[in-house]
Every structure is written in structure tokens, then in C-alpha cells.
């Protein structure tokens, strides 16, 4: 499943990311890395979501969340 399909209130572990290298590096610097965990706080039906990574909240766009695969 992708992060986009994540359910608010649950924590997931990132399996892999298929993003442009710049975006991937930026996310990695924030602590969103393969094997790292991400907590879904809120989401819109088809759109941006709010997640918690390493203790801080981030709003992530659909283009990013669709490309992040989670461990089942």
C-alpha cells in the first residue's frame, strides 16, 4: 500500500520511495527514510495529508504520498 492509503491514527513503516531524487533527499533529511516510521494524523479524501515524522508535523501533497510505499 502507499502512504496515500494510510488511515489517520495509525503508524506505518516506509518500505520504499519512488520520488525525484531532490524530493527524496529532502524527505530523508526530515527523517522519512526507508525503514523509518511515519504516523498519519489527518487526510483529505484525495489530496494532501498531515503526517508526523520524527516528532514534527508535515503537510504532504498527493504527488508525494502516492509514491511512498509502506510495509504491509
Amino acid at each position: 500500500m502507499t502512504l496515500q492509503e494510510g488511515i489517520p491514527g495509525r503508524e506505518y513503516v516506509v518500505e520504499s520511495m519512488e520520488l525525484p531524487i531532490e524530493t527524496e533527499r529532502r524527505l530523508e533529511a526530515l527523517g522519512l527514510i526507508e525503514g523509518g516510521s511515519v504516523f498519519v494524523l489527518r487526510k483529505k479524501r484525495r489530496g494532501a495529508m498531515i503526517v508526523k515524522i520524527q516528532g514534527a508535523r508535515f503537510a504532504l501533497g498527493l504527488g508525494i504520498t502516492k509514491k511512498i510505499l509502506l510495509q504491509a
Partner: peptide, 11 residues
């Protein structure tokens, strides 16, 4: 840009 790559910290 095909994808909407919003990325912002919410304080």
C-alpha cells in the same frame, strides 16, 4: 510539473 509535491512543516 505532473505531481503536486506540497511539503511544509506545520508548527
Amino acid at each position: 510539473t505532473q505531481e503536486n509535491a506540497l511539503l511544509i512543516e506545520l508548527p
